[in-house]
Design a protein around this nucleic acid. Structure first.
Lengths: 319, 319
DNA sequence: CTGAAAGCGCTTACAG
DNA sequence: CTGAAAGCGCTTACAG
């Protein structure tokens, strides 16, 4: 029995008669044998499972991130346990209890961090490593993010290149540091280019995008000629608002959407977008988490791949 | 130690001195104690985890189904392990090996059944119960589905009420029995109402919807005046095709989309849709799975909630 | 009413 | 080079 374990795990490999090894491999194959994960885990204090906390299963915009994470985790031999961190039903606290306190996972990725949540520090100092994905917990040293500032900058520069000088930003909630980095990058680049910026914040939904777009255009002064929108849902809503207002895109107003998505290819007009390396973010989160599990030091990581601009039909030179 | 176990599990409850119980509860509380899931599982041959096999993490249209499933599973004390069954990377076979053969889960829900896949029978006769969600494995007695035929019927009747007699159906791939039931219900109701139907099948993507819509209208005869489309992605593509063709909706052509989604509220025109009880389907799948785990008999189930028509602006009376 | 013992299926020093 | 023993943290008959 111990010999079998050694052979199958490839541990005491060298000191086992080849003929014995052969027999073991054959039997294992024939019997379809796989070590029992729970027993193995109990002995090794390791589970082969990773937890993934999503903000809300209702809004699956982050599915490329999860896919990137799943693929990498699978590749590394880990299984993914998902839990929802919606304030209502399943709370982060309960998820933590079930996953970590009951010893079900080796590490936890949190996609739902909100600034100032006291739980976050509990997570960091808990018995299993954790990482914060996309939405950071500043100072934790456990963050995995993208070049969000560059995304904002890229949008602003594109619009400035098109001679726009009066810009608008339809931002997500500023409690998300991700949103804030984007916002800051946009403003900095706009100002550097001599443009002014007016800002409206809104939840990341269609309706919120609809309402905020109307607010943005319903101004006495500084009505922007080009707008950078925080996500796809908001953009869908904003487009409907513009239609209802009779504002033509891009003739009267240029828009750039943060995050790319197939749907942007099929709306009218096709929407220029900033494409983020979402799959890479998911994979990077798993890499960072596994590195910690394996005892690595660990520090904040930023996915090096730069955001890119997908130039479509919703932006035009100011006339 | 055994007393603690008994008290905390509420098993030998009756025969324990209240004072002892009290002390145990207090200590557990104070120490933040939770039984170790792996050890418990090893002893009880139970894991408290359920597997969920999704067809592809790339296409998250089924996220309401997963959310319904997650919520119910969580409520029942189960944790959800997800795995992808994409032909490419992570195969169903490998997922089965890791989840079932390694004893990680108590039951498996499969959302990715394709007719004629030999693996499906292996699943059914395997060591843990399984259910097929939405896409059935006929004859298995393990199916959990919705009233898809009624969805097709509902769409046809709505169109016939509007005096359309020449209908079209942009269907999904007919290897999916779900798609087929929808298709059959639509055709049966159309014929019963004296209408003719032309059918195009296409993958469930925007591009496929775009192409198929053009094919559907590019006919010598029987050009339909109203079309029932298989899913939201196809509808987005179809709308773009209609724009490019100069076909006005609903003046020239009425369309009904299968499955409802917020985005249909914000496109132009707002699209009439058939709303399916997707959350309920997810919950029902978990209920059926858990019933089997608990030793129940098990048979095919159909979510009783009827599909409903959400009447918006993309359908009009034939002129 | 409560404690001691066995055992779930593994892995890894430790003998031999 | 390979087997016997201990132990991961539980639960549940079984004694007492």
């Amino acid at each position: 029995m111990s010999t079998v374990s050694r052979v199958l795990s490839g541990r005491g490999d060298s000191s086992i008669r080849p003929e014995t090894k052969q027999r073991i491999f054959e039997s294992a194959e024939r019997l379809h044998y796989r070590p029992h994960a729970l027993a193995r885990g109990l002995r090794l204090s390791t589970t082969g499972a990773l937890g993934w906390l999503v903000p809300s299963l209702r809004n699956p915009n982050n599915s490329p991130i999860i896919r990137g994470a799943f693929d990498r985790a699978w590749e590394l031999g880990y299984v993914l346990v998902i839990a929802e961190d919606s304030a209502e039903r399943a709370t982060a606290e309960e998820a933590y209890a079930r996953l970590v306190d009951e010893g079900r996972i080796d590490g936890l990725a949190i996609q739902s961090a909100r600034e100032g949540n006291a739980l976050l520090d509990t997570f960091v100092s808990g018995p299993v490593p954790c990482v914060f994905v996309d939405r950071c917990h500043p100072g934790s040293g456990c963050n995995v993010a993208m070049r969000d500032g560059d995304a904002g900058r890229l949008a602003a520069e594109h619009l400035i290149d098109l001679r726009h000088a009066s810009l608008g930003h339809l931002a997500g909630p500023l409690e998300f540091d991700t949103t804030r980095r984007r916002h800051d990058g946009f403003i900095a680049a706009a100002n550097a280019g001599g443009a002014t910026v007016v800002v409206e914040t809104a939840e990341l939904s269609e309706q919120a995008g609809y309402d905020a777009m109307r607010r943005l255009l319903d101004r006495r002064a500084d009505v922007p000629t080009a707008i950078f929108i925080a996500n796809v849902n908001q953009t869908i809503g904003a487009l409907a608002a513009l239609r209802s207002l009779g504002v033509r895109v891009p003739d009267d107003l240029s828009i750039v959407c943060h995050d790319d998505d197939v749907v942007l290819e099929y709306v009218d007009p096709r929407v220029t977008a900033i494409r983020m390396p979402l799959l890479r973010l998911g994979a990077a989160a798993i890499d960072a988490l596994v590195a910690r599990i394996d005892g690595g030091a660990g520090q904040d990581v930023v996915v090096d791949e730069a955001p890119t601009l997908v130039d479509r039909a919703s932006t035009a030179r100011l006339r």
